[in-house]
Simulated assay, not measured.
Amino acid sequence: HFVFTRQNRGKLDELSALVERGQLRPHVGAVYSLADIPLAHARLESANNGLLGKIAIAVEPSLIA
């Protein structure tokens, strides 16, 4: 299921403000490094990937839990 929307800076600013105030918390199901992007794609394409949230890509290795 895909949803395509037009870019809207105002809405993005509103979402950012909600995140900053702690009123909106995105659910991250997994974090991968840049080098592991192929593994992230493979997991997304797997039928039983066990994900409960989004996959994030950590640009800094220290951010990977």
Rank of each mutant, 00 (worst) to 15 (best):
H1I: 07
H1K: 06
F2V: 14
F2I: 13
V3D: 13
V3C: 10
F4P: 09
F4H: 10
F4K: 11
T5D: 07
T5Y: 04
R6F: 06
R6S: 10
R6A: 10
Q7E: 01
Q7W: 04
N8W: 02
N8M: 05
G10T: 15
K11R: 13
K11Y: 05
K11E: 08
K11D: 06
L12E: 04
D13S: 13
D13T: 11
D13C: 05
D13N: 09
E14D: 08
S16N: 13
S16G: 13
A17G: 01
A17W: 01
A17Y: 00
A17D: 03
A17R: 08
L18F: 13
L18P: 00
V19F: 03
V19Y: 00
E20Q: 10
E20V: 15
R21W: 04
R21K: 14
R21P: 01
R21G: 01
G22N: 01
G22K: 02
L24P: 01
R25S: 08
R25I: 13
R25F: 00
P26I: 07
H27F: 12
H27A: 15
H27C: 15
H27R: 14
V28I: 15
G29Q: 08
A30N: 06
V31E: 10
V31L: 04
Y32I: 07
Y32T: 07
S33P: 03
S33R: 08
L34I: 10
L34P: 06
L34M: 15
A35R: 08
A35L: 03
D36C: 03
D36G: 02
D36W: 00
I37S: 02
I37G: 02
I37P: 00
I37F: 00
P38C: 13
L39Y: 02
L39K: 09
A40L: 05
H41Q: 09
H41D: 05
A42F: 00
R43C: 05
R43S: 03
L44Q: 02
L44V: 04
E45N: 02
S46E: 07
S46V: 06
S46F: 01
S46A: 14
S46H: 04
A47W: 02
N48L: 02
N48I: 07
N48W: 04
N48G: 14
N48P: 13
N49C: 03
N49Q: 02
G50Q: 13
G50C: 12
L51G: 08
L51T: 06
L52C: 09
G53F: 09
K54R: 09
K54N: 07
K54F: 00
I55Y: 00
I57E: 06
I57A: 03
A58K: 06
A58H: 07
V59Y: 14
V59G: 06
V59C: 10
E60P: 10
E60T: 10
E60Q: 15
E60V: 07
E60D: 15
P61M: 03
P61K: 08
S62H: 11
S62Q: 12
L63W: 12
L63D: 14
I64D: 11
I64Y: 04
I64G: 09
A65T: 14
A65D: 14
A65K: 12
